[in-house]
Amino acid sequence: MIINRKFLLTRIILLTTLVTACGQSEQATPAAKPPTQQEVAEVTQQTPQPKPVQVTEDTRQTYQWYCSQCHGIKGKGDGINAKLLTVPPRNHTKAAYLETRTDEQLFEAIKFGGLSVGRAPCMPAWEHTLEEDAIHSLVRYIRELCDCEAL
């Protein structure tokens, strides 16, 4: 766990030097800043254990309603905001990448936002919008989209 946290922190620090914000970057963007206390605190939050869940019609609708704005209707990372973000929304049909992420990491990315797993802040946190069960089923749905499991 300690190694894991260190790793995440390094990722965040690395990331802040690369990404300043989520809007299409401009030459005049301000200098990168280290993560705030709050961001670091988010990283060290307890990892919730995912449990087996089903993908239902509800899951698909939830994905379409909220996630497709960035990830696209079919999860290919081509939603209407996609071209306007500094970091492109992840393509949820790409097995090669998603195999390298655990279900817990995907769960945390959805619940606490991209920053919490060392990814870009352009991926918002859904913790106050979606129930945990809905998030677990979204993780399963993404596994369906990529037709892959964590290695």
């Binding site: 914000a21 809007g23 963007t29 960035c70 991209g114 802040p121 991926m123 946190a125």
Partner: peptide, 14 residues
């Protein structure tokens, strides 16, 4: 821009 990611969905001024 970062903590809440509002700019991902809303145009604003840099």
């Amino acid at each position: 821009e970062r903590t809440f990611g509002c700019i991902s969905c809303h145009q604003s001024l840099n």
